[in-house]
């Protein structure tokens, strides 16, 4: 019965997605565990509901995909917080450019090396290549070079959960003490989810991290085509 209802409803997938996301936010507020990261939890909850009710992905996506329609304009808006950080951007311009570029290259070369070790094909390799940057751009890059955009999104989400959970501890263990350096490294390695944590660590950390998220995805776009066809 539920199946029939869902197949014929034009809004069920949309409703399910938003409710799942809200539950993710609620769990996060209640338990403060990083694993209750709303984007990650919403994916888990929606998959669980679809499996339990035996609904196929196409049925769900036929109404839910309208949400994704606004990804491009929302990503364009990232320029606004970056512009608000323009004073910091100008002040540390050289450090920002060099550090983020090294991080971006390190990310892609590590994925390249490990993909060789595990014998991955081109499709899996380009799926993981943009996994450190923000979802909207990472997904586009993965699609552009023929990867599984879906898997890229999940990889990016897991990266975000890692950054959100371990950023502070990792900074201590790896001896990153400078607040500017901390912000840059968190933003470059774990995009917006890590930035949430960086904002809790301090104002400079948060500002540098949100700046790094945007700069890192621009740099990734610039160099990814040189690396995408290596495997």
């Amino acid at each position: 019965m539920i199946r029939d209802w869902m197949t014929h409803s034009a809004f069920f997938g949309l409703l399910l997605t938003i409710v799942a996301f809200e539950i993710g936010l609620l769990l996060k507020r209640k338990f403060h565990w990083s694993i209750f990261n709303a984007p990650f939890m919403s994916i888990v909850i929606v998959i669980a509901v679809l499996l339990i009710c035996d609904i196929d992905y196409e049925t769900y996506d036929s109404s839910a995909h309208y949400l994704s329609y606004f990804i491009t304009p929302a990503t364009v808006c990232f320029a606004i917080p970056l512009y608000k950080q323009i004073v910091l951007l100008k002040k540390h311009l050289r450090a920002i450019i060099v550090a983020i570029m090294s991080g971006v290259l390190a990310s892609m070369l590590t994925v390249f090396g490990l993909s060789l070790v595990f014998g991955f094909n081109h499709q899996l390799y380009v799926t993981l290549l943009p996994k450190s940057i923000t979802t909207a751009v990472g997904m586009e890059i993965s699609e552009m070079f023929g990867g599984y955009a879906t898997v890229t999104i999940v990889a990016i989400c897991i990266t975000g959960v890692l950054g959100n959970t371990f950023a502070e501890t990792a900074c201590r263990i790896f001896r990153i003490h400078d607040p500017v350096a901390r912000g840059l490294s968190i933003g470059t390695c774990s995009h917006a989810s890590g930035t949430t944590r960086a904002m809790m660590m301090g104002e400079i950390e948060g500002a540098m991290s949100s700046l790094a998220v945007v700069v890192a995805c621009v740099f990734t776009v610039l160099v990814v085509s040189f690396l995408a066809n290596l495997i």
Partner: peptide
């Protein structure tokens, strides 16, 4: 923006 990635990720 974050909620927009749930449908493709599912």
């Amino acid at each position: 923006l974050p909620v927009m990635f749930t449908p493709p990720a599912v």
